[in-house]
Write a protein that binds this DNA or RNA. Structure first.
Lengths: 136, 136
DNA sequence: ACCTTTTTGCAAGCCAGTCGCAATAAGTGG
DNA sequence: CCACTTATTGCGACTGGCTTGCAAAAAGGT
């Protein structure tokens, strides 16, 4: 995925904050909270402000470069867009998010697409529970 | 569902704030935000404090009398517990939440119960989109 | 290099939700 | 019915994630 192309094709400028946020998101394989992103960004490039990070994330979401998902603890987490037939496994103890792919999600998507009186844009399947590491 | 019994059986006291919150939740057929609940509560019984409303909602959630679900806009909404094979249809424009029952959700629940290394407690399927009324 | 327009950094602000604590009221036993 | 214990409330202060207004900085076009 080429960030520059994606931005320019929609008349947005390619800036340092945007590049760094993008790098952080793609380097991390998995979900990050806004806080984690902001921290890592200013570790790599001190001086980039939180508000720029938030604005960038919002922009990326509009461009569908990233996806925001709400977590059980009230926070939200961000990751580069990916295929959709995925269940989010959210550990309610440490907050980590894993993926689990299942064809059922796609079946569900098709079913939900035909509900009358509602135009579905996206589907989010989240299971909360406790991950291996927190169990012990 | 009898609130008094539910509370007493777990050694909790039956108080006015709890009753009013419960009434509001059961009268409203559907999801309410914490804010809406607090507003309606203090309309019915001025003097009941927001913090009591929040504490009550948390308590009810622990007792599994109500269920909290996170919404796409970052808020959360509350409703009396109900069967689990349900998809939440969240209108991203007006925030209203509808239900759509589907047996697929239960299949999904079974599948997810067997994912290794993760102990699932609950499943939440949410579709966001635009409702009929906001479409026009 | 110049000019226009977007984007940034900063600081102040916002607001849902939480917390500590003294006052109040539920439930209990006499 | 009253006194007593302890959970619960209301209040006000506070927190923390996120947003906003604005002047200064930098992107991109010519």
């Amino acid at each position: 995925m080429d960030l520059e192309v994606a931005l320019r094709s929609q008349d947005h400028r390619v800036t340092r904050p945007r590049q760094v946020v993008w790098d952080v998101l793609t380097d991390a394989h998995g979900h990050l909270s806004a806080q984690e992103i902001a921290d890592e960004v200013s570790a790599r490039e001190p001086g980039i402000n939180v508000s720029s990070v938030y604005r960038t994330l919002t922009l990326f979401a509009e461009l569908e470069l990233v996806r925001e998902s709400r977590r059980a603890d009230g926070g939200s987490s961000w990751e580069p867009s990916h295929g959709d037939d995925v269940i989010h496994l959210v550990c309610s103890s440490c907050g980590v998010v894993r993926h689990h792919a299942s064809p059922l999600v796609n079946e569900l998507r098709h079913e939900v697409a035909h509900v009358p009186g509602f135009h579905v844009a996206g589907l989010d399947v989240a299971a909360n529970g406790v991950c291996e590491r927190c169990e012990s």
